[in-house]
Design a protein around this nucleic acid. Structure first.
Lengths: 197, 197
DNA sequence: GCAGAACTAGATAGATCGCTCTAGCGGGTA
DNA sequence: TACCCGCTAGAGCGATCTATCTAGTTCTGC
């Protein structure tokens, strides 16, 4: 029908979960709260996710990880060079913090820290997402002329600076940390590319 | 009496809480679990912390923040220069991850991300701790000859690289990220000090 | 030796947790 | 029309959550 909801119940549950997980974490978010936010009944959750909260968390992490990975790829493709792409990405992160009153940041890091030692399934999901981002960044570096090990170390540092910037900016409710880490990330890219070897 | 316990009940509760919070987060840690780990009765918790879990969390964050701040100061004082102190600190962080099977990392970041948008008291505690670290790092930079704004931006980046390194290393169960972020932090210190102005 | 403070001890309240269960709606196919 | 099945709907389970409550124990100063 034409009046059928545009977004499926399943997608609404995943979207609402991503929103809540990144604001208050995995353990701090109840299923009732997710379903209320998604305007979905309890039965639907276990229909789509028989594995319960863990399966939902796994899918949310991987979906969000892919989304942000693609976002970076889009920005990097539009940028004239590696350093500029990184700069634009950090600027966008700072703007997103302002737009959402410092609530919506990376949904992976929040969950990653709390599940790293308590839930192997979700820990693996966060590890896979981070590894995907690092691999993508490594490719950019290699394309820019770096050796693979150097490109990888640089990519790791950029991801760490983004995540660290989120932690500090959300805690301080200020974009100062994100701007400082962005500047260091850009400088690191330029310096690495300028190095001999 | 001579057989009196060396560590007070209050301190055992704070210590056990710090241990559990950094492993599984604030929301993911129950009071019963804390008291079991601290070998303390329920009544003692509310005797020492009438404000309940929130007051306990506030004290744990500030105590742990001060502890790690002092740890850095000790290392930096023993090091011949700024860059070396940073290098030694990152090496220590990597070793701590190995020693604790990637469980014990910074107790502030885990809690910071989950409370930033949900608990103003604890958010402020994490902000104060980070600001203290950044101020201490800024002082080191100024002593090394940097202007205050430059020293501050560098200090922020170093803290972000540590926290980001913890996130990635715990997720991947590997010290590779911590080593990569440490190298970038040291390079950033050297480059900033070498810059004119 | 005694009074009062400091602390221990744990049962329990009331709410919420993740999850399971059965019932029924609604739209596509025979 | 009759049927089927994907999905909706929510009551309710046992467990666990934070927090309160009353007693009992240990320590300290007079």
């Amino acid at each position: 029908m034409a009046t059928k909801e545009r977004v499926s119940t399943r997608d609404r549950i995943v979207y609402a979960s991503a929103e809540l997980f990144r604001r208050q974490g995995y353990a701090g978010t109840g299923l009732k709260q997710i379903l209320a936010a998604a305007d979905a009944p309890f039965g639907s959750l276990y229909h789509f996710f028989p594995g319960g909260k863990e399966q939902l968390g796994d899918e949310v992490l991987r979906t969000a990880g892919e989304f942000f990975g693609r976002l970076y790829e889009t920005i990097a493709d539009d940028a004239p060079d590696y350093a500029t792409g990184v700069a634009v990405f950090f600027d966008g992160a700072a703007q997103a913090l302002i737009d959402t009153d410092y609530a919506d940041a990376c949904p992976i890091a929040t969950v990653a820290l709390e599940v790293a030692s308590t839930n192997e399934t979700l820990r693996q999901a966060t590890a896979d997402v981070f590894e995907g981002w690092i691999a993508a960044g490594t490719e950019r570096g290699v394309e820019a002329g770096l050796s693979a090990p150097r490109a990888r170390a640089l990519a790791i540092a950029i991801v760490a600076l983004i995540e660290g910037g989120f932690v500090l900016s959300r805690a301080a409710r200020s974009t100062e940390p994100m701007k400082a880490t962005g500047a260091v990330a850009v400088a690191a890219v330029r310096a690495t590319l300028a190095e001999p070897g």
